Amino acid sequence: MFFFTLLLFSYSQTSQQIQNATADCREILSNPRLTPLHGTLDVVMNQNVSLSCHSDSGSPPVRYTLFKHSQKVSALNRTDLNPALFNLTINSASDVGEYKCKAENEISNGEKYSRSLNFTLKEPVSKPVLSSPNSQAKKGQNVTLSCLSEKGSLPITYTFFKDKQSIQAPVKMQNREAAVISVLIKSSSDFGMYKCKAENRLRNNTKYSNSFNFTLAEERSNSQPLIISLGLILLLLAIGLALAIPFFIIPSYKAKKCKRPMSSTGHTSIEKVEESEDRITYAEIEPVQPEEEYVNLSVIRRDEQENRSCATIYSKVLIRDGAQAGPLHSPE
């Protein structure tokens, strides 16, 4: 009996020693490392990304858990020391932000957390637009070119080309503004095809603009302003003449026509020759020399509408050497 009791005591001691030795072989986990497999934290919409969570030391099995803003995303168990891989898809802006992972094994107080990791959502640049305030230029003139992409994550770098050759150092814009350069038109070769290129930090994301060509502006001759001035003067004279005819020339002609002619000598005698309801005929006799006289027949018409009378000379009658003239009548 005593021997059996001694045997049991020895077995319990041996078992405790084995358990202590096994516990001494278990290793506490180190803090895991969370890293992206593609090497960059810049992502675009609908992109697939892979995150690796791994503790360099620690006794397996190890359980790895991925968190986003303290919310559990996924968990994986590893029976060896290989890293756990978490696959994600960036479907919206809410899928980017702070990520962490946790590693734990069977040893008490064996939970360890990694450092946080943040994704940045990047937008590809849109096709830039190349433009200029002047589409025409002449030799010796400075012209400006502007290049702008309306979409794309900042900063955006713009490069200007002429016939596929860079004409200036790249311009990096931190704001959503156009890159502007100045070009001196020295010769006809400067009227070539211009383009610009836009790119940001995203890989394989380069866009080229439309082509732009300057045309040679026609130089105006010095005689053109003189010709234009003469044309304006002639036009003003024609307008003035057209306005003067109804307002000045026609009324003056009518007034001269309605005025009864007077004698140049003042020694005239007037005789009434004929009278009717609508007109009166007068004979104006003017002596010129003793042997001859001139007779002017004037017909005066009555105009009831305008309430005036107009006189018109119809003929001249020459009387020579005291010959007696017969009765005078109007030619009408």
Rank of each mutant, 00 (worst) to 15 (best):
M1N: 04
F2Y: 07
T5N: 02
Q17C: 00
C25L: 04
P32G: 00
G39V: 03
L41P: 00
N48A: 13
S52N: 09
C53A: 06
S55Y: 04
S59P: 04
R63Y: 02
L66H: 04
H69K: 14
T79R: 01
N87P: 00
N91E: 05
N91Y: 08
A93I: 14
A93Y: 15
K102Q: 07
E111L: 11
K122S: 07
S132E: 00
Q136R: 13
A137S: 13
V143E: 03
T144N: 14
L148Q: 09
S149L: 08
K151R: 15
T157A: 06
F160R: 12
F161V: 03
K162P: 03
K164A: 10
V171C: 04
Q174V: 05
I185M: 09
S187A: 09
S189M: 08
F191V: 00
Y194Q: 12
E199T: 15
L202R: 04
N205Y: 11
K207Y: 07
Y208N: 14
S209Y: 14
S211G: 15
L216K: 06
E219C: 05
I227D: 13
L234A: 15
I250L: 13
R260W: 10
M262N: 02
S264C: 05
S269I: 08
S269H: 07
E277W: 04
E277R: 11
S298H: 05
I300C: 07
E304W: 11
R308I: 11
C310F: 13
T312A: 07
T312L: 06
S315E: 06
D321G: 01
D321S: 13
L328T: 05
